[in-house]
Design a binder for these strands. Structure first.
Lengths: 195, 195, 195, 195
DNA sequence: GATGAATGAGGATTCATTCAT
DNA sequence: TATGAATGAATCCTCATTCAT
């Protein structure tokens, strides 16, 4: 039992270090030796926990994706719709501000989809799920006269693209005021109607 | 003279091919042999035109940046400011829709700034120049009551981030209707006031 | 006492599995992990019974050699010599037909004598002992006019080479009729004189 | 043209060295670095000529096989059949005495057929061709009353096994008298009838 | 200039051996 | 004794760069 715990703890440390390296240097320029050293484990130990470098990368991409799904796909619907959207925006910006390292790894996959087809598909599926989850809220808001009438799919796409772009363009630490400031800008994409 | 022309044409072909490879596989996973083959030139010829792989990458990043500067930094000011902004948006979206390959290379530099510090600085300087160029227009629009009062630097940042995000999230061909559709969404970031 | 028995049984199982692996893949391409798995024991246990991989190989080569010596060096002399030889041939072919796995391991040592000098010496010594044991019988047969006059050492060498060659060239199961059929061919090497 | 010649000469040198190493240490225990050093070429150059270690091994096994086929499958039929057989034996023993290194590599493939299935099939096909080529001669000899009546396939098999066994059991240099002495022993396998 | 063979440093992966539990 | 995680040396292979033709 104790064993198992130690094992998991060590695995997590390697994975976290590797994620940082992948984010900083990309897949190809990250070496296992570098990950091992930064993790404080021996070279061979990395292979004890992750059979290949590809496996390590897969885990770095897919495991945090589960948490991201929980944050982005579980929507707490409230009235009115515009309030729901504002809460979402706050939650989303908080998440991306805190997970910059992971998101840079994910961008690597998106930018070089040809190199990581199966990982790309996973991320693309998430993208689609997110759009499908967000659209009904947008539609509700438009019906309620809170948002301008625009293709909800387009709005969802634009919003997600905006989040991606903000994250990529700003390697800032989580504490930066930027993330709070961006909330109002993000909200504009939904076409709020001033009453 | 004829010689010179042939020389330039060959160089351009190599650079274009290399840009495509860098965009698809990143810097580290692109090999000179691959570029040579795809360019239809001999292996050794790549080194005749570009002394090192780094040089080739630098050229792939910096040369198109000049064209990008012309498009993004030369602003044709018109009245009213909101019209200027709309023209800019059209021009910008057109550019990014047509230069997807180059922009993926640039994203590579941004995402892995630690690997390419001098290139990153060039792109970052462009980012700053762009913001400095755009801000006066935004300020004018706000003064004219066309845009809501918001930190103009924040708006410029949000807008550029949006462009980056849309480009990264959509590997679509230039012909997609997405690029036209996004114009209205982009415009919303400026906080247009309906009159 | 019971303990000891279990110990020996486990050791024997590991050694048998290892012999099969060494025969199939050679020394270098056989891994301890593979032997452990195929033996149904834990990885570490292999080292409990055999301190190194070399030791395991040595045991796989030398322990069955004792049995082989009993079969090949204990000659039951009968009259006439040609009958003795025929009985030997039968016994030898039976042995090699039943010990194909072991003999492939031994061939490994012979073929790569530079890698296993001490093991090679053991096998070579056996070779010599065998020749020395066989020669008197051949000489007797020649004196009795049953075999043509030929250098007895040459005949013994040819006969042992024949046994080795038949075994190497035929991975057949023990039940194959080949082994019986070869008896008459083996006998010819002794130069029997038809009366 | 000169280029091509140099190229072939270098390739041949690497292949010859590699064959010696494979014969001495087997496939797994032979390192590319060792082959490179012994060949007097750089490590990387080995890969210029042979893309992988497996390819190098394949070439070491298959290329000399062509010469072996010429020697073993082209039979110069003469009268009487027993004379043909004696000439064959002389030719064969000469070949194996001179190609000990190659034959040890081939034995490696035979002994570990599971590791090299496609190479094993090539050698096995040769084995079969050889038997099919030899059988008619044996049958002729038996019809002419020169050889005892025995299954010709069995005789051919026994003879080839004998050649293999003699070669494996004797790492002697070509000049050894053994090879000449063995001719009469080999001939006995055909069951010559003294007249 | 054009070509492609030569070089060797660098990196992923394997695996015998050790050792803590 | 039994187990299997930890270690790092060893090895195959890649590829940027050099250079002779």
């Amino acid at each position: 039992m104790q064993q198992k715990f130690v094992h998991q703890e060590k695995r997590a440390r390697i994975l976290q270090t590797a994620t940082q390296c992948f984010a900083d240097h990309g897949f190809a320029a990250t070496t296992i030796a570098e990950v091992a050293k930064a993790s404080g484990v021996s070279f061979g130990s990395v292979f004890t926990y992750f059979s290949t470098k590809d496996t390590l990368f897969r885990c770095a991409v897919l495991e945090p994706l589960e948490e991201m799904k929980r944050v982005f796909l579980d929507i707490d619907v409230q009235a009115p719709p515009s309030l729901t959207v504002q809460h979402l925006i706050t939650k989303h910006l908080k998440f991306i501000s805190e997970h910059g390292v992971y998101l840079r790894v994910a961008q690597h996959v998106i930018a070089q989809s040809a190199l990581f087809p199966s990982l790309f598909n996973e991320l693309d599926a998430f993208h689609l799920q997110f759009k499908n989850t967000l659209q009904p809220i947008i539609t509700d808001g438009q019906c309620a006269g809170e948002f301008e009438a625009t293709d909800p799919g387009l709005v969802a796409t634009a919003y997600l693209s905006f989040l991606i772009g903000v994250r990529l363009a700003h390697p800032d630490a989580p504490g930066s005021p930027l993330w709070d400031d961006m909330r109002v800008l993000a909200f504009r994409l939904f076409g709020p109607i001033v009453q």
